[in-house]
Amino acid sequence: MKKGYSLFWLIPLLVAISAYPVVTRSVIARESVFLILMYVTLAASLNIILGYTGYVSFGHIVFYGIGGYTAFYLMYKFGVHLIPAMLAGGVASALVALAVGEAVLRLRGAIFAIATIGVNEAIKSLVTNLAFLGGATGLFFNFKIYRSYGGAAKAIWFAYYLMAAVTIVTVVVSYFIKNSKFGLGLFSIREDEDAAAVLGVDTKRFKSLAYAFSAFFPGLVGAIFFFKAGNIEPDDAFHLIKSIEMIFMVMLGGYGTVSGPVIGAVIYERLKGILLVNPLFKNLHMAIAGFVLLLIVLFAPGGIVGLLRERFKKLRGVLE
């Protein structure tokens, strides 16, 4: 793969976005940037399995839920600090991905997509029935938990910084994966799995690893999000719509590119923000999202980055 230069502008951009609420000390800005960062991370990690490897993980939100529940339970029950709890959440998600992947990654195409929805729904209904995880109502923090972070207000800022760090790490990792030999192997699987195997790519191991990577980061995100929210419940943690949002952002930005998920996530969050503020659009935002998605699928399957790359050949090194 030809080395591109997208990190040179992506990282400063993400740092600038993250710094904005810190500089202005604006809580409103912080909340919206938190969402942007969260979306960027989710989209960039989904892109590893969806965009690089070509496996349509439709139920990808399951890893966000697993990470969220794992971390939340550790903090709630044993008072573990957010950082180790978050890492445990990420590792739990990655391990589940390895185990589940062992089975479902043998499936291809649409069947794989359906199986991942099945996995998400199965785990969601399982969690809904587990008493120690609070069943359908979920778990709630006692506010004392935030004390060791210097109070609730500081805890939320802490979560915010952590999210910014996780986002940057995710984008950097997704860049290095794409520009590595591993990434070349993944792309060859995406294009033709049988040909890749005959060319010497250990397709089974590569797919599993890609799946684990793309599960690890959503696990971290889930941990931070539910720490900040103070409660977790199955309907939030395994919400299929969020899965679709992730796919939407990847497609909008340009799947298989490093900058695509970032661009897609930022635009999606802004659009959603604008639509939700307007009382008319507020109720129509789903229909509008559907309409936009349809337009992308039909007329611009390469997303925004794909369009730009076609239009401006010189930008290709920057927009990979």
């Binding site: 793969m1 030999k181 070349l184 192997g185 792309f187 060859s188 995406r190 294009e191 033709d192 049988d194 040909a195 890749a196 060319l199 010497g200 790519v201 250990d202 298989g256």
Partner: peptide
């Protein structure tokens, strides 16, 4: 079985990277 969305060079690199 070309890897359609990869360049010709990248196609050949796959052979070099993962073969003998």
């Amino acid at each position: 079985k070309p890897l359609n969305e990869l360049t010709v060079l990248e196609n050949v690199m796959v052979g070099a990277c993962f073969g003998k």
